[in-house]
Design a protein around this nucleic acid. Structure first.
Lengths: 162, 162
DNA sequence: GTGCAACTTGAAGTCGGCTTCAGGTCAAGC
DNA sequence: GCTTGACCTGAAGCCGACTTCAAGTTGCAC
């Protein structure tokens, strides 16, 4: 029941089949997202199931998870073994919440923007569009500075320009 | 009709009122997003309307625009002057499209995820969740490698694990 | 006129998610 | 057995949006 030689993929094969660069796969391995055996010559050999893991990672990234978060999620699933319905549901629910929250924020943005256009006031400040809750922002990179609350132009008499 | 001394804000005041760090504001200025006059001693003085510009920038970022894109958008609006209904509409429409596209992608993700849970197959691969269109991804940072299309696990016989 | 907070600059650092490079090793087809 | 393409490693580079630092200058209250 063990893996025969041909059930293993080289990194190049995994790259081709997953659509990722080999460098990315090595990076994923360093991050503990995927695992490999080594040949006597120290080359990586991946189980075929790694394709699924990689797919999982990419999907999770789409939902806005960082690789660190993905690792956590993966750690909750059995290693290289079919996840139970429970396992899977737990993970999926997390994603659902994420997605819903993101959609919600975008909808809010949209409503405010629509209101802005409709009312013709031409002022972000008055319409409160820019007062949109800043938390999270895009799940972007780097040290992001987001002092939430703390109204920027509270009781300001509105001057001419934008 | 000119600006009196008190209509001008120091960078510290602008920072406090906008909720951004002074370093961010200087960065915005270098990027051409905001502008300032200088005192005889070379210190920045911002027009009050800069608060609006900053608000605009933050709002645009929320919608997923990069600062470069924001600059382009701002360039289409009159400098330090109230934008016309036309001006504003053009910009707003761009944002709407952005938001709609983002929402659409998330909805797609959600539907696929829901399907996955419902069908109980426990396989991202079979459910096609991970085949979700990769384009754009999150408007994140850095050199992102996204080879779209190029199915990762096409005619693969599905083995045990995830 | 002095003290001190707020300002100035350019350069370098940070974060995540990679890619690229240099210099060397392995595997397999002829 | 040799060649050649795929592989190995660690270090460095890159992107965007900033922050942090060092070392010096201004502005304003007293």
């Amino acid at each position: 029941m063990g893996l025969s030689r041909h059930d293993l993929l080289t990194i190049g094969q995994l790259a081709e089949r997953s659509g990722l660069a080999t460098s990315a796969l090595r990076y994923y391995e360093r991050m503990g997202l995927i695992h490999s055996e080594r040949t006597t010559g120290n080359q990586r050999r991946f189980a075929r199931s790694t394709l699924r893991r990689v797919a999982f990672v990419r999907a999770a990234q789409q939902v806005g998870l960082s690789l660190e978060e993905v690792r956590t999620a993966l750690d909750r699933l059995p290693v290289d073994r079919a996840p139970s319905h429970e396992d899977w549901n737990a993970v999926a629910r997390t994603w659902q919440v994420r997605i819903d929250r993101q959609i919600e924020e975008l909808e809010l943005m949209k409503r405010k923007l629509t209101g802005c256009i409709g009312c013709g006031c031409l002022s972000l400040t008055r319409c409160g569009l820019y007062n949109a809750d800043d938390r999270a922002g895009r799940a972007g990179s780097g040290a992001r500075y987001l002092r939430t609350g703390d109204p920027a132009t509270g009781p300001e008499p509105l001057p001419a320009g934008l």
